[in-house]
Amino acid sequence: MFHYPFNPAELSETARIWWDLFGFYLTVAIILGVVVYAGLVLIPWIYSRRRQAVDEIQPGVIPGERGRMAYLAVIVILIAASFIAIFVESYLAVNKLAATLEEKYNVDIEELQAGEADGVLVVEVIGFQWGWTFRYPNGVETDILYLPAGRPVIFKVTSEDVFHAFSIPDLRVKVDAIPGQVNVTWTVPEKPGTYRVQCYELCGVGHAEMITKAIVLPPEVFDFWYESQSEKLESEGGEQ
């Protein structure tokens, strides 16, 4: 998790949303965890040194009730309050994941379904036993995922056979690839480089080998690659 030589949140827009939220959860967990573990360790440590007096457990006698309602209510309310804090933050994050695409990049998913929007790359991802096919709008199919940096990418993910899960973990992209349906997810890669693409749902004996590369290119290099692929495809089509 901490093997990045730089801030992993800068790898993509979705990674930033993820790490922000993870940081919040981790902070809350550490604060609450310190309090709870302090109690769990200190209380037995202190009271195991006391041997005298208190013995409210007698053989054959049902122990009495303990704890005043007010005291118990405070505990319950404190726990419920931490829950509400976490819930509000996570609810906002879920909405943010959907809203960022629309607000920051002016991409309307519904419009996108109808036709091709400007400045957005739509890649169809098809999982199979055992590998991935990436299909670009110009019809080019590859087994390595090429992406432009700084441009929104929409993934339309499906499967030819069994249940797979498409993921580019460093960019915080993941969605299930399910036969008979298309799941949509998105990201905006920000740093050129090579990233791991892998299947995250057991899909048979080749599951571990269902691994490939995502290469994020600077936008102008990506455009060059994309154009050359289009030309190649056209000339092949012409020959036939």
Binding site: L21, F22, Y25, S90, V94, S167
Partner: peptide, 14 residues
């Protein structure tokens, strides 16, 4: 609790 969130699940799932 970390797993309760669809956003964090992008990394956690599987």
């Amino acid at each position: 609790v970390f797993n309760s969130n669809p956003v964090l699940d992008i990394a956690n799932r599987g």
